[in-house]
């Protein structure tokens, strides 16, 4: 594919590529990036430290909390569990790619309306996860609580809660998050 129409930004790993750095090209929120990174760099640290896209959060760095959830190749993943180099050529969407303070994504607006967050640290991950969850339900992908694996999926309270359970919110905004997602699912 050609990316000529998309602005290319060359960002070097800060402060300079360490010995053994490897080249990587990927598209994040529609913007093409070429970087050189230490092969040990996770996708999460590439985003936060190298590209300065700090909306994606590091809560545990172990795939246990979901704060780093991003959408890569159309699927939600924990960015901390994936090395940056595994994403050569991938398209990645982060919270910054969903909406801005002046133009909120419907889920971002619903989180504000239903107060689906408190400290805000898990929030970008919750929202990225919720976007993907609604997509998974629409695509008919069943979950652990789906009674009928072949019937059309619906975004019931039980389905949404089950599918969102990889995203921990220690402030305990779950009840409000469920309402925010339900509102967008019904729209």
């Amino acid at each position: 594919m050609t990316v000529a129409a998309i602005p290319t930004k060359s960002v070097r790993a800060a402060p300079s590529p360490p010995p053994g750095a490897m080249p990587l090209a990927l598209t994040i929120n529609g913007e093409h990036h070429r970087v050189e990174v230490d092969p040990r760099t996770t996708l999460l640290d590439l985003l936060r430290d190298h590209l300065r896209l700090t909306g994606t959060k590091k809560g545990c760095d172990h795939g246990q909390c979901g704060a780093c959830t991003v959408i890569a190749g159309g699927k939600r993943i924990n960015a901390c569990l994936s090395l940056a180099l595994q994403h050569d050529g991938d398209k990645v969407t982060t919270i910054e790619g969903l909406g801005t303070p002046d133009r909120l994504h419907p889920l971002q607006a619903a989180f504000v309306k239903h107060d689906g967050f408190q400290c805000g640290y898990c929030t970008p991950g919750q929202i990225c996860s919720a976007v993907a969850v609604l997509g998974e339900i629409k695509a008919g992908i069943p979950s652990h609580v789906s009674a009928d694996l072949t019937a059309p999926m619906r975004a019931t309270n039980a389905e949404v809660r089950e599918r969102m359970s990889g995203n921990i919110c220690r402030c305990g905004a779950y009840s409000n998050i469920a309402e925010a997602i339900a509102e967008v699912a019904a729209a």
Partner: peptide, 15 residues
């Protein structure tokens, strides 16, 4: 609504 809500939900609040 929280006055900082639109920053927290867009990843713009700096920790």
């Amino acid at each position: 609504d929280r006055v900082d809500g639109k920053f927290k939900t867009t990843g713009m609040a700096p920790y």
